[in-house]
Amino acid sequence: MKTFTYRTATDTAGGLEPGAAFLAGGTNLVDLMKLGVATPDVLVDVTRLGLDEVTSLEGGGLRIGAGVRNSDLAAHPAVRRDFPVLSQGLLAGASGQLRNMATTGGNLLQRTRCRYFMDATKPCNKHAPGTGCPARQGDHRNLAILGGSEHCIATHPSDMAVALVALDAVVNTSQRSLPVSDLYRLPGDDPSRDTILDHGELITSVDLPALAMPSTYRKVRDRASYAFAVSSIAAAAKVADGRVTDVRLAFGAVAPKPWRALIAEEALRGKPATRESFLAAADAELAAAEPLKDNAFKIPLVRNLVASVLEGLTS
């Protein structure tokens, strides 16, 4: 690991010198430092800033401090009661040990687990801009079918973020507030940046607006537990007189960012709550998919997930 200096942050104003990085739970950053993929000169520990509270917002929403650990958030009574999609998404991710360490802010900012990104000896436009992307010709079974570019098809690994995107969550930083769906950017011709945050911009909390519908999270992975998603879905839906009156859908592990399925949502509003409607909506969203040789299976997988999860929510 490259040498660095360590200090603790004393306020939430953000701001970092060039080459410095914030450290929270460390479950991803310390690993990337061991791998030589992340090489900060300075680590600024933000875990002693008191950002570890979950508080109620007017109207039934919640404010989640950026330092709240994933395990505490998943077990929080108000989250389990009012935002089951978030509790379930968190519990579907990582292990008990890692959830005890990982924070809300850090979970949002974790990097892709694309094997080329994680290997400092391999070309990768994300960790070494301009060196190329071996994934298109190489191992891309678990990489993106939506939102990728010729320069990068990495997938965002978070489960929590998929739930937050479906919940219309708002991220508060040291500089501004923005919808979590606007936090992430697509790779285009600059895959090195995952988010629109400035260097030194510190996430301080995440706001959840009240959700007046049942919600759920489902994750498909290669083993029963403790694995990243092959595909996942966060969903919420409301039905009246047999028709969909409101719906939220977001997909995980299919794109470089948590993928809000706005096309599918639009296709569903006012439609009969039937498997045919759900499949048609999924097809509308997935029409833009650009699969490669080994990840085309994600199209029928996501299609079936949409139908199965919405059937469960609306029956």
Binding site: G26, T27, G96, L98, N100, M101
Partner: peptide, 16 residues
């Protein structure tokens, strides 16, 4: 166990 909670000590910097 850190303060009673289970964690992976390989991903925690001692200085923290």
């Amino acid at each position: 166990l850190l303060d009673g909670r289970r964690v992976n000590s390989c991903l925690i910097l001692a200085v923290t």
